[in-house]
Design a binder for these strands. Sequence first.
RNA 1: GGCGGCGUAGCCAAGUGGUAAGGCAGAGGUCUGCAAAACCUUUAUUCGUCAGUUCGAUUCUGACCGCCGCCUCCA
Length: 466
Amino acid sequence: MLKFYNTLSGQLEDFRPLREGEVGIYSCGPTVWSFAQIGNFRSFIFADILRRYLEFKGFRVTHVMNITDVEDRIIARSQENGITIDEYTAQYIEALWEDFDALGCARPHVVPRATRHIPEMVNIIEQLIERSHAYKSDGSVYYRIGSFPLYGKLSKINLAGNVAGASERIDTDRYEKEDVRDFALWKAAGSPEEIAWDTSLGRGRPGWHIECSAMSMKYLGETFDIHAGGIDLVFPHHENEIAQSEGATGKPFVRYWLHAEHLKVDGETMSKSKGNYYTYRDLTALGFSPVAIRYFLLSVPYRKQLNFTLEALGGVEKTVENLQDFHARLIETRTEPGTNSILNKAVKRALEEFELGLDDDLNTSVALAAIHTLSREVNTALDNCQLREDDKREVLALIERFDSVLNIFGRVEPPMLDEEVQRLIDDRQEARRRRDWSRADAIRNDLSHRGILLEDTRDGVRWKRR
RNA sequence: GGCGGCGUAGCCAAGUGGUAAGGCAGAGGUCUGCAAAACCUUUAUUCGUCAGUUCGAUUCUGACCGCCGCCUCCA
């Protein structure tokens, strides 16, 4: 039975979707003011695993992820550059998809942008005003927190306890609010040149939280199954989404709230000022492969803080290479017809453990351990020539199933060898037959310098690019 | 001040009231002409510290030390 830890209840719960066999997921996407950093990608990869595992379990999934393309930083930077916000965000949206694809994330089925859903937001705000959950003030519209008694049910925020100590962050809204806790649904335009939309609410732009209420309900319905995002979004973002959505519809908004913990770097918070801030692009520039980055980010259950170090990523690079070598070796191996019952059992057990792990609130560590165990067992069988045709087919099919969720093996495409290299390999084989070891080693060395590694196996020469 | 997460071998870490998954790195070995790959063995008498509960705690409780979040727009 698939179980998720639901932030709302604070407990592990059996997952049962609203409609048999179907699941709607809304995951909070990026604010496209810059290149996404690896912490963002941990969240995105988590959402990707969530979606893929639900599909693995046979659900028909609709995955919606928003793109926040209007926000203070975006407005400020586009103005500095003298371009529109669409022009400004276009470059980062394009980069986002490049990174997304490279990291092996399936693109969400629907990717709504805030700026394309202003009428939907205005519509909800009007409903909120009608129901006295919101009020106008100086051209802006605020949510009246006092009107929603359940406010705080997600984040368990204790408003009384927050008055005293509080954080140093201060409220920056300039307008009159009935209560300091009230938050903006609609911000009146300050000056004529400011980015704004003319609507029935007046000229202005939406507050941050309203876009997710509007877009999730538009594509998934007023009540839907899963809402996912980073843990920092629990308060105020998701708390406010609940207040807005349930205030407007009078119906429960989301059934399961799933939140991914943060990534640390060298044991510290990642921040630009600390100099430990990495985008995906920073890591590939250092020579790390996308699949290793993906593996690292998914290797620990999503609710655990994960400590990123370059040393650890270097280790994962090797792990991933070993898995891919294993996969390639399996594909290349020649087998005799038949079945080996030992392998048959190994395959069965691997699948069981994989599923047991992921059923338990997506414990990817356990799932990966099952894969490594299988890899070792199959390698042993290969060493001992015990792998038969049926086993090979079964194991390859299983790897494909595993990869439909984790996407860490990837496709094995035989890279083209150029003729000269092939001739050198042939020459070396000829030299080896003559037992001319110095000649054979010289060729191997030469190829190694060109980044081509040779392995002499029972079935002939294997080679790979480094 | 309120709410939450964490501290497990050199590194990344899973985990459970019954005596420590997995990966990387290290050491030794098998295989190999030598390598590589693979496999085998090995690497925490112990899970931040100190108490308590228990037949038994890394796992529960309390205190302490250290680290990381959230408390109005940051995944």
